[in-house]
């Protein structure tokens, strides 16, 4: 057992190292892009603040909340980014756009829609499952009854079968 643990620990650190290595490689590769698109990144970072918050508060492994909010938040950021690109992608333009309430409204409104979807779906789906579950239960029970009628109670396995001749 001890040996297995000893073997497992280096594997874990190796995997961790591999993951951080990937991140570093990705970061290094992205650096030129960030350097070139710095104004766009500034606008994006400001408008995507709800998604970052959602990512931070989402404790699930799959990060459904972050994805739900993030996707819509990203769509809401697009008008600001397009406007920036139309103005030549300068730091001034980026500051103008970042201080424009319209773009804030669009980006944050889209993020709010994501939050709303995430919060409203469970009661709706819960009710739907209630109805479906009842229907499926009845269907299976009917099929069971049909089998009992055709083959007798023995088919349930609860009654000992009569020995066959």
């Amino acid at each position: 057992m001890a040996r297995q643990i000893e073997q497992a620990e280096p594997t874990k650190s190796k995997e961790g190292g591999k993951g951080s290595g990937k991140l570093i490689v990705t970061g290094v590769l992205m650096l030129p892009v960030i350097a070139v698109l710095m104004p766009s990144c500034i606008v994006l970072a400001i408008n995507m603040a709800p998604a970052i918050v959602a990512y931070a508060v989402d404790r699930t492994r799959e990060k459904y909340l972050a994805v739900t909010v993030g996707l819509l938040n990203f769509c809401g950021t697009l008008p600001a980014e397009v406007a920036l690109w139309q103005r030549g992608q300068t730091y001034d333009a980026a500051m103008d756009i970042a201080s424009d309430a319209f773009f804030w409204l669009v980006a944050y409104g889209a993020a709010a829609l994501g939050w709303a979807i995430y919060l409203m779906i469970p009661p709706i789906l819960g009710h739907y499952y209630e109805i479906t579950s009842h229907a499926r239960l009845q269907s299976h029970q009917r099929k069971q009854q049909a089998l009992i009628e055709a083959w007798g109670e023995e088919v349930t396995g609860e009654i000992t079968e009569k020995p066959s001749g």
Partner: peptide
């Protein structure tokens, strides 16, 4: 189950709406 499926559904809806918006 409801929570899990709802999260999946919300992600799906969000993705769909986002795709349409883009």
């Amino acid at each position: 189950n409801v929570q899990f499926r709802s999260q999946q559904a919300a992600t799906l809806i969000s993705a769909t709406v986002s795709a349409i918006a883009i």
